Amino acid sequence: MVISEPMTAAAAGTWKLGDRKVNRLGFGAMRLTGNGMRGNSDGAPIDRDRAIRLLRVAVELGVNHIDTAAFYFSPARSANELINRALAPYPEDLVIVTKVGPGRDPSGAWLPPATPEQLRGQVEENLRQLGRDHLDVVNLRRMNQESIAEHFGALAELRDSGLIRHLGISSVKPEHLAEAQAIAPVVCVQNWYGLDRRLSDANGLLDSCGEQGIAFVPYFAIAGERREARASDTHHDEVLAVARAHRATPAQVRLAWTLHRGPHVLAIPGTGDPGHLTENIAAGALRLSPDELTRLRGLDQKAV
């Protein structure tokens, strides 16, 4: 799609995270720290001042949903610190969503998953780094445990005490959503989802979230199987054909397809490139035809 002037995130429409209305096109902060999450060298953190400008431009373009975590850091950068420096004092409509469960030591090495008792410390660390007295939304990231009840119950207690406003869950199956909902309201489910990976379609979780009024928030919607690494330059012929028809990029088509999955589906693409930021936000205005959506949904997947 040709961008004559910057579009805003409002073009994607809105949804509510609990009582907080957000534009469906948000921003993921992980890539601001480089790709040190998996110990690879596929990307380096961008210049600190450039990262701060990028966050400010994102908000100026209507982004009011930012996804982050205390464990998003590299030796040179901390996502939460960048957000604090760039955006505090925070706009009233800005919703910052963080997650707990995983942890890393100062060297970046992964620690064993947090116990329920350790979650308070992780929540307090996010509060400290972000300079806030409460967190808008905290996602419990499941770390392969069969039950999340004890961990989610610990977060529900922190919600009751006022440290957290709303709760979500991440990397889960339908049974985990039911388990959490029996303890406290869930406002969002954050799972790996996109054209290349649609387990949440196969098990009905994406549609179930919509039926319950819960936001479904995909991660790796553009990168797909490459995950934290940079998105591939290789795309299926059908994606390229749809992109050409709309004068759009393949990444924009992937984001638009994801948003078309339902009004409750949000997007949190991350980037350290100002040009890609503008393109990602513009994808919220890309409208695919029913035929295009069907053709794209019919693509082979590496994992369903």
Rank of each mutant, 00 (worst) to 15 (best):
C209M: 10
P218S: 07
A231W: 13
Y193M: 09
V253Y: 07
L206G: 11
I222F: 05
G162C: 10
A223E: 15
E157V: 14
P218I: 08
P185V: 07
R247D: 15
V189H: 05
P218L: 10
S161Y: 01
R226Q: 12
V265E: 03
R159P: 00
L199G: 12
A251K: 09
I222V: 15
E225P: 10
G153H: 00
F216E: 11
S208T: 14
R230T: 11
C209S: 11
C209E: 06
L240D: 09
Y219T: 03
L177E: 04
C209G: 10
S208M: 13
V172N: 01
V189A: 03
P185K: 04
P263Y: 00
A178E: 15
E225W: 03
R244E: 15
V242S: 00
A184I: 11
D196W: 04
Q252C: 06
G213E: 09
T234M: 03
A223H: 11
L163F: 12
A231C: 06
F216D: 11
V217A: 14
I164F: 10
H236F: 08
F220Y: 15
C188K: 00
S200Q: 13
G210W: 02
L195M: 12
Y193Q: 05
F220S: 15
V253K: 07
S170D: 04
R244K: 14
P185E: 03
A243N: 02
D237I: 06
E179M: 08
A202I: 10
S232C: 02
E238Y: 02
A256E: 02
I164N: 09
D233S: 14
Y193G: 07
A215L: 07
G262P: 05
A245C: 01
Q181K: 10
A248W: 08
A241E: 14
R244H: 12
E228D: 11
C209R: 05
R159C: 04
P185H: 05
V217L: 15
A251R: 10
G204H: 03
E157K: 15
W192R: 12
G162Q: 07
S170C: 14
S171E: 15
A223F: 03
P218R: 06
A248N: 11
R198F: 09
Q252L: 05
L155N: 02
A256F: 03
D207K: 13
R230F: 06
Q190K: 04
L177I: 06
